[in-house]
Design a protein around this nucleic acid. Structure first.
Lengths: 207, 207
DNA sequence: GACATAAACGAACGATCGTGCTATTCCTGT
DNA sequence: ACAGGAATAGCACGATCGTTCGTTTATGTC
């Protein structure tokens, strides 16, 4: 009984790698079977359809994401430190997979593929964005963000930064991507704190 | 002779739609043939391989992108106005395709598929990012950005914004995405101008 | 050891994939 | 009008796709 579960987990592990690299739609029963050294039908029996396999993959990825990114960030004091931790965690998690964050890949993959998989993914993405919003909210309550900060807006801007990082990192592998992201994050945090950026104080504007 | 070209163009047009929705890898000879009401082999003859078809698709998309996004922006006076025009153009162009910007989709699709297609795409993406950088540079020269502004950093941050917009728009279809992007753009521009953000002045939505 | 249950297999299915090859049809230049 | 080339069709190939079915092999219980 436990053997079946172990097997299933290792299949999912393998599927996660493929999904992060080639996309969730590219996770094929045959390729998974070959990677697991078993027959197509044997593997197929663990899931009842490809659709179900994809959903289970997303579910499994969600658990890892929650465990490695969100939960440890919530253990850090609310406010700027928590936000920094979240970004660090996200970078580490995303960098751990060959093809980067599976949700980013899956999102572009399924944005125009209606069905249960997209529905599930959408729900996860909304939950993630809401996590970002709530973390911003807690930053206000902790006194790190100004009271009138727009938390939805913050979620959008921070997520955008992660997406930019993801593309630069996975496609371009630009060497200073980390630096770029770091700099942008600092500016973002400053903007929501309401403290003018140091550059803004300088005489500014010139030919 | 012109008939062949027309046909080819309409095939590419069709392929662009599929590529923007389902991804560049999902552009299949069979589906294209069905859409064009012709045989697989007849369509195939226009390109010599699927790889070549994909590259021609990217090339065609690049021409449209240049014509509709970059060139008209360069006709606008350098500086902030040009940047605004660029973003507007990008939004219009991206919104015109069912699945949004084909390059965004293709980027996540091919980030881990080595080959000529990826090479070509990479080259296009680098050119695009360099366009962003040069436009920032011209904003410095026009006096709209402060002299010490990091143009590479600006390219990263602006592109991130477009990516955020793309995901929100295509997957989430959040109704106020445009507003979110607009607000973020204004903050971005202000930051590079060196004018302190009216953070402590303007009311926010709270979260 | 008998029996129930779970896990994996092998073979086959219809469909579609990309890609050749050989005709045939269509268009154009002269 | 006719030649020549471009455009398209027809057919087949090996491979792979997701899926079903019946069977075999482990595993665990009494």
């Amino acid at each position: 009984m436990t053997k079946g579960i172990d097997r299933k987990l290792s299949i999912l592990e393998n599927g996660l790698d493929i999904a992060s690299r080639l996309g969730l739609e590219a996770v094929t029963i045959g390729s998974l079977a070959k990677a697991a050294n078993m027959s197509k039908s044997g593997l197929f029996a663990h899931f009842q359809s490809k659709e179900n396999l994809q959903i289970e993959l997303l579910k499994y990825a969600g658990e890892i994401f929650s465990r490695d990114v969100v939960v440890p960030a919530l253990a850090v004091p609310a406010g700027i430190p928590r936000i920094r931790a979240l970004v660090e965690n996200w970078n580490r998690y995303s960098g751990a997979m060959t093809g980067g964050c599976i949700f980013v890949t899956a999102s572009t993959d399924f944005k125009d593929r209606p069905g249960k998989v997209k529905d599930f993914l959408l729900q996860q993405q909304n939950a993630w964005i809401d996590s970002l919003r709530r973390i911003a909210r807690s930053a206000i309550e902790a006194g790190d963000f100004r009271k009138d900060a727009d938390c939805y807006q913050f979620a959008f801007e921070l997520y955008s930064l992660l997406l930019g990082f993801h593309l630069y990192y996975t496609l371009l592998d630009s060497s200073d991507t980390q630096k770029r992201q770091q700099a942008a994050l600092e500016k973002l945090l400053r903007a929501y704190q309401g403290i003018p950026a140091p550059a803004d104080i300088s005489p500014g504007a010139g030919g």
